[in-house]
Amino acid sequence: MSGFPTLLYKEVLRFWKVSTQTIGAPVLTAVLFLFIFSHVMEGRIRIYDAVPYAAFLVPGLVMMSVLQNAFANSSSSLVQSKMTGNIIFVLLPPLAYWEFFAAYVLAAAARGMVVGAAVLLVTLPFVEIEFRRPLWIIAFAFSASAVLGSLGMIAGIWAEKIDQVAAFQNFFIMPLTFLSGVFYSIHSLPAFWQGISHFNPFFYMIDGFRYGFFGVSDVNPFRSLAVVTAFLGVVSAITLTMLKSGYRLRH
């Protein structure tokens, strides 16, 4: 029998046991964002002509929570295990590197999606939103959280200290998330920045995710899903190569 289900279960239990911090706190942050931004911006912008700003903002905030929490889960789990030394508990057993990968990424995706769902649930009483294409919502939530779970693994394996993970998050993940259109439609940007946004893979995650809610988006959702899937393929390949070589895990 394989050790994969146990590792997956352990990784899920790890964040579940401290859910105030791993689920409650990010939900509170997202809700604060929603109230402040929608209060300040309401009435000033209408997006796709029909969608009020608060409704437009909700999927963006949900996706932002999904991304940040998926990343936080795998990166913090790995870097903490490395620093405390208990990483050996999962290095000693006969786990294949791809089982290792799958367990950490799926647990990260689970955390991302649980937080995302909680944010959505909490905002529902305040903001009226539609769910036009639920399958797209799920497809983008899963693929995007898997990408960030995998990026979190890369950061967690590479980093030797907590602050290196924080740097990865602050200088790479955060800018890409904020510039991807969480708070705005890229159509409101000047042409030059619109062009640049198309090179940001996070833009496709949020745009496709929004399509699931409103049935309209900046880019065709099939194209977005193709971009996100391709990006997932690339980061997974990098992570698997690192794991296979034992980079910074097996000396």
């Binding site: 050790g3 146990t6 401290v18 405390t84 508990f89 000693l92 057993p93």
Partner: peptide, 21 residues
């Protein structure tokens, strides 16, 4: 070394599970 998230029994169950037992 130890994993501060878990109890003794959980630690042992997980270790057993990682080995597929």
């Amino acid at each position: 070394v130890f994993d501060p998230f878990f109890t003794v029994r959980e630690t042992l169950r997980f270790q057993s599970g990682y080995f597929g037992v």
